[in-house]
Every structure is written in structure tokens, then in C-alpha cells.
Simulated assay, not measured.
Amino acid sequence: MRAHLMKRAVLALALAVPGAAIASAVAAPPAHADGCYTWNRTLSRGSSGSDVRELQLRIAGWAGNNNVVELDGQYGPKTAAAVRRFQSAYGLRSDGVAGQQTFAKLYQIQDNDCTPRHFTWNEMDDGCGRGGWTGGPLTTAQTRQNALRTMWKLEALRKGLGDQPLEVTSGFRSRTCNSQVGGASNSQHLYGNAADLVSDNRSLCQIARAARNHGFSGIIGPGVSGHNSHVHVDSRRENNRDNSTNNTYWAAPDCGIAPGYR
């Protein structure tokens, strides 16, 4: 059953501006009852810390064409640009500063288990049935963290496709599962970094083309053997831990995306 039919929408909570005069550049957002994470200060260029990393995780899908937002806790130009794209997509003031309105929108589209509104943990742990996030090369915690970033990228991709539903047909795979389905020995599915996608409302080529703008460094779709019935997207570039190469690879020749590294 599709995630967008399974999950309840999280209601937006109205955030009241305190009456006291406080400079907006340093004002902390009002306290917010959120089951996953709550930001307690405005973030902008030069900010750093775990709260910046939590923001980066959620706006990773707004990195822009052939770019990624590293989860490094440093609010640099790429993070600011991604925040601007997020703000613009949701009709907010697009200034690249993550403050009260930006956080309110994130709370609105975030469920209490930290997943975005339209995707679920169960949906991402379904390579060959529920695997429990074990049996891959990483720890369970690392795999789940990668899967969470993947879901937030998918939420951005869904928004970029006009809020049209996307279905994940394969997410995390254990080594055993990956072998059963004939996956590559170094498949990004093993790391929680990948998802195979279909949609009733958007063509595979529309998905593949849009994915280029939403933080996916791996895109494989129509025209590639074994990928004419779905689009594979992944975050292989972030999985290159020593950052020695830019291994962004896209291939969907039937969609006008020539195979090759970018």
C-alpha cells in the first residue's frame, strides 16, 4: 500500500510571534511540540552545530542540479541555496535563512518518527520483505540514517513533480536480498541510500529528469537494461566517504540523459 495513502497528514501548528522586541537575526523560534526534532534558534550562513545538520538532512533534496548538501553541520553557501529552494517551493520568503516560518513548514511535513509526510520506514525497508535494517555493510543506525536522508530527498522530488505520489518498489536490501534480486555487489540499496520508483501520475522519464535537481547522484532509468519499469535513484556520491572522487552517475538514454559521470 502506498505511503501517501498510509500516513496521516501532520497538521501545521501556528507559531505565534512573541510580543517582546527581539532582533530577528538572533531570535529563537517559539517552543514547538514536535515528536522528532525542534529547532531553538534561527540558522543562517556561518551557523554550525547539530541543529544545522538536522536541517541539512531535511533539505538535502533541494540541493539543485548535480549538487549535494553534505551533512557536515556547517551552514555554508550550498545549505543556504538549498534552503532558498525549499522556501520558494513552499511559498515562503526565499532568503536562505532558516527561521520560524521555515521550521514551521518542516514541522508540518514531518511525522513524529522523523520521516517526511509521504514516506515511511516500512516502505524503505522492503527490498525482499521487512529486513529490519540488518544484513548490510553498515550498522543498523547508519543504514537507517541513510534511508532517512533518502526519504527526505524523495519528499523533495515528489514536491518537484507537482505533489504527485511516488511509490518505492525497492528500498534497503540485505546482502541476501540483494543477491536474490540480482543486484550489483556494491548496490547502494545495501546502504539504505537507494530507492526504485514508479508513479501512476508521472512518467518514468519525468521522474528521472526531475531527480537531477533533488540531490540524487545516482539515477538509472529507461534505456538501461533492467530499468525500463522503474527509475533507480541513490546517494552514491555521499557514500564516497573519503570524497576522493565526484562519482555522480546518471543514465536514462530513453529520457535524453546520456549515460556517464558528471
Results as ranks from 00 to 15, higher is better:
A3W: 11
L15F: 13
P18R: 11
S24V: 02
A27E: 13
P29A: 06
A31K: 13
A31Q: 14
A33I: 04
G35L: 05
R41P: 13
R41Y: 09
L43F: 06
D51P: 09
D51N: 05
G61H: 01
G61K: 01
E70Q: 12
Y75H: 06
K78Y: 09
T79Q: 11
A82C: 05
R85M: 01
F86D: 09
F86Q: 02
S88F: 02
A89S: 05
Y90A: 10
Y90F: 15
L92F: 03
R93P: 05
V97R: 13
Q100L: 15
Q101L: 07
T102A: 05
F103D: 14
K105G: 07
Q108W: 12
Q108F: 10
D111V: 06
N112P: 12
T115M: 15
P116Q: 02
G129L: 10
R130M: 01
R130S: 08
T134F: 03
P137K: 00
L138R: 12
Q142K: 15
L148R: 11
T150I: 07
W152I: 00
L154I: 00
R158E: 14
D163M: 05
L166Q: 10
V168N: 08
S170K: 14
G171W: 12
C177Q: 12
S179H: 14
Q180P: 08
V181N: 10
V181Y: 08
N186E: 10
N186P: 06
L190E: 12
A194K: 10
V198W: 08
A208L: 03
A210G: 07
A211F: 01
R212D: 09
N213T: 09
G221D: 10
G221T: 07
V224D: 03
S225V: 03
S229E: 15
V231N: 02
R237Q: 10
E238G: 07
N246D: 12
W250S: 03
A251K: 01
C255L: 08
C255G: 06
